[in-house]
């Protein structure tokens, strides 16, 4: 596949999947964000950091509209970014993935990346709504979150490489190995240092919506890139995969 075509289909896939992600978030996550920010504002009034004045609400509405309007744009930027990673991994791994159609291969890879780069790190460091999170710890939390994603992703690649050394009926050993490895990392990594002060019902429902939103991205990017690849890949052959 020519470089321009490769880049084009990867970037369009990421853009469209990001658009889906942003739109889904706009529909199902925004109500929880509004609720959490409402609690945050009440806490500011109660602590005396801010006063409940018309001026406060004018300023608040100003940046809140900016934040909300950025949901879909940020979805597209994140979609292009993560879609680029997905496109690279797919290009490098497509011949190793089982399946007789690129959509099947692409969806399988999307599922693997969703689990290793999102779901497992999420179980350790779940998403939190506004009002949860201390500004003083944001750098530490970012380092912990990124580190866990990187460890999980690199671990998955390493155990996949290891699986190539085993015969077909023993490849499960690698999967079990990754499970043991990531479980050890899970318990060894420090906890999120911030205390959750918001109602847990709000936090849990927000987290569920967050998972649905991110999942919509991975499903979309898997289907779209697979369809594009199937359409534009000209030199392909179907061979038995054992």
């Amino acid at each position: 596949m020519k470089t321009v075509l490769f880049l084009t289909i990867v970037l369009i896939s990421g853009t469209l999947a990001g658009l889906v992600h942003g739109t889904v978030n706009f529909a199902i996550v925004e109500p929880y964000l509004d609720q959490a920010i409402g609690i945050e504002n009440q806490n500011l009034f109660a602590s005396g950091e801010e006063e409940d004045t018309p001026e406060f609400w004018v300023e608040y509405e100003g940046y809140r509209v900016w934040q909300k309007s950025g949901q879909i744009l940020a979805g597209v930027i994140l979609g292009v970014s993560v879609g680029s990673l997905f496109g690279m991994v797919f290009a490098l791994s497509k011949n190793s993935l089982p399946g007789n159609h690129y959509v099947k291969k692409s969806l399988l890879l999307a599922g693997i990346m969703w689990a290793t780069l999102y779901l497992i790190p999420f179980l350790k460091y779940p998403a939190n709504p506004p009002t949860v999170g201390d500004a003083e710890t944001v750098v530490l939390r970012a380092i912990l979150y990124l580190s866990f994603i990187a460890i999980s992703g690199i671990g998955a690649v390493a155990f996949y490489k290891l699986s190539k050394r085993f015969e077909n009926n023993k490849k499960i050993i690698s999967l079990v190995g990754y499970g043991i490895f990531i479980s050890a990392v899970f318990f060894a990594m420090p906890e999120n240092p911030d205390e959750i002060t918001a109602p847990m019902s709000l936090v849990n429902e927000f987290r569920l919506m967050s998972v649905l939103g991110v999942s919509s991205f991975w499903i979309s990017v898997g289907i779209i890139l697979g369809l594009f690849w199937n359409r534009f890949e000209s030199h392909k052959e179907t061979t038995p995969y054992t």
Partner: peptide
């Protein structure tokens, strides 16, 4: 601020 809502929503 522009990415604030997606930042929270994406974890």
């Amino acid at each position: 601020e522009l990415t604030h809502d997606m930042r929270h929503a994406a974890g």
